[in-house]
Design a protein around this nucleic acid. Structure first.
Lengths: 147, 147
DNA sequence: GTATTTGCAAATACTTTGCAAAACC
DNA sequence: GGTTTTGCAAAGTATTTGCAAATAC
């Protein structure tokens, strides 16, 4: 009655297998599509539930730990934030770009009083494939000029 | 007819002002609440639209550049990703934690062919306030024991 | 056998959008 | 005055949840 015991169902197993096959980071509905070839009757809700369970057990990783909504900020310089996994609060963290991650982590711990659990670094850019596309578009626009 | 010209409306101005007043990173609906004290008839849709416009012009920052859905990943080790701002694709990036940000950026550029635009570092943890709460909860749970 | 998990569908949360009226320059 | 922007409401996505039937152990 105390602790409920997790069961390894067929659904959970297949989700994990499929996720292990791919090298990218599918969304829940992409996982749904992948899994349906094996289990045609699985529901999207089950996929969501199991992704949640698996990541709670540490068997998979959930990118974007952020809870809920997108956040906005009047300062456009700062790109380093600390997120409280309990209350969802987001605060700024000062970081010198010539500082390494380990140094940063220990500094933050000392200064902010946060208990640090992990981090996520997300680089933003344009992938090679899109770059060539974008260049094509620019050429097109240059031709049409002013729409 | 060619390029539409942005207008600085009262709504836009107030949103920017309110956002400048606070030190944290409010969500769209928190901004909505803040702004409504000044402009009681503003709509949430307008807030969304203007936050979008302001961030397109670089006047504010939109945290969480990720488009669309949450993503999942079978590898639980890797926490450094590169996101294509055009197609939304997310890939892994190798990073040694003893490497600084600048080094990382230039390495990535060379190796991946991405055009790098920016980055976002998100540290995950439990804030001081929540830590004390959590400790209280743990004590409570210890007393009640087994729910 | 019994507690957990499923599929389904409905509910919720967040964000975007169509449109006529209002505001901006 | 003509175009952009607004408020409103409805629609669109993404995710979560209630429940009876099915499944795992």
């Amino acid at each position: 009655m105390e602790k409920k015991q997790e069961r390894m169902t067929r659904q959970k197993k297949v989700i994990l297998e499929e996720l292990n096959k791919v090298k990218n980071h599918p969304t829940a509905s992409e996982v749904y599509d992948m899994v349906r070839s094996k289990l045609p009757r699985i529901s999207l809700g089950t996929v969501y539930r199991n992704l949640e369970h698996l990541s709670a057990k540490g068997l998979i990783q959930k990118l974007d730990m952020r809870k809920g909504q997108r956040r906005f900020d009047a300062t456009t310089q700062e790109h380093t934030h600390i997120l409280c996994l309990n209350c969802g609060k987001v605060e700024d963290i000062a970081l010198q770009p010539d500082q390494d991650i380990l140094t940063m982590k220990s500094k933050v711990k000392d200064q902010s009083g946060y208990e640090l659990i992990g981090y996520e670094i997300e680089l933003h850019g344009i992938c090679p494939e899109c770059r060539s596309e974008t260049e094509k578009q620019k050429e097109n626009q240059a031709c049409k000029k002013g729409r």
